[in-house]
């Protein structure tokens, strides 16, 4: 024993050290590490299963997606077609509307232009009247003023041929100067027209020209002048 070096004291120390190391390493290495490794192995196995399941699910999903895509594509085509048709409708509607609006604008513009010209002419009326009275008085040797005009109008009305009275229907009244609303009403009532349109033509110089579908009454100063000129010749 001595020669082999066996020493019970050293062996006891070795035993204690071994047990201490066993306990410490079991506590701090083996138990936790074995748990961790088992857990990790399970996780990996589970992960692989999950991955397989996920792969299958993905395959299904891809097929599904393909189907959905095809459906969506056809639907989209349909929608596009529909939209195209509706767009054409809308375009034609818009065009029509635009055309109407354009017509209306044109009409409004015309009306406005007429009204503006009438207003302008109304402004000019007094001047033109005096000019035409002056011209007429030069020619006729008598003064044509507003009262004269009135009297011309009245005269015209009085001299209106009988067949021109109570005409009804629509008439067209041409005057050298714009008529006042009262004059217009008076003429309309005298003639008995249901509808009258009034226009201004300074070339007739004075008086009125009434046209209707059946005939014409010319009480204009020009025609009288022409009459006079014919008579004079």
């Amino acid at each position: 024993m001595e020669a082999l070096g066996i020493n019970p004291g050293l062996m006891l120390i070795w035993l204690i050290a071994f047990i201490m190391l066993y306990v410490l390493m079991t506590r701090f290495i083996y138990d936790p590490l074995t748990n961790v490794l088992n857990e990790r192995r399970n996780r990996i196995a589970k992960g692989l299963d999950d991955a397989a399941a996920a792969a299958a699910a993905r395959q299904n999903a891809e097929a599904e997606a393909e189907k959905i895509l095809a459906q969506a594509r056809s639907e989209a085509q349909k929608v596009i077609d529909e939209a195209r048709g509706r767009g054409e409708d809308v375009a034609s509607g818009i065009e029509q509307e635009a055309r109407q609006t354009a017509a209306k604008i044109q009409y409004d513009a015309q009306t406005e232009a007429v009204a503006t010209r009438n207003a302008e002419l109304g402004n000019l009326r007094e001047q033109v009247l005096q000019i035409s009275v002056a011209v007429a008085s030069r020619i006729l040797g008598e003064n044509i003023d507003a009262a004269k005009q009135q009297s011309l109008v009245n005269n015209f009305i009085a001299e209106l041929p009988a067949d021109a009275r109570g005409l009804g229907g629509s008439i067209e009244v041409v005057s050298a100067m714009p008529l006042t609303a009262a004059e217009q009403a008076q003429i309309t009532s005298e003639v008995g027209a249901s509808d009258a349109s009034f226009s201004v033509d300074p070339s007739i110089l004075g008086g009125l020209v009434v046209r209707w579908s059946g005939g014409l009454v010319d009480g204009s100063v020009r025609s009288q002048l022409s009459q006079m000129a014919r008579n004079l010749n």
């Binding site: 390493m25 701090f28 748990n35 088992n38 857990e39």
Partner: peptide
Amino acid sequence: LLLLFTAYIARRRPSDGS
């Protein structure tokens, strides 16, 4: 050395499998 090794492993090892 083994005690140091134990301390080292205990400090470095992950606390769970994730």
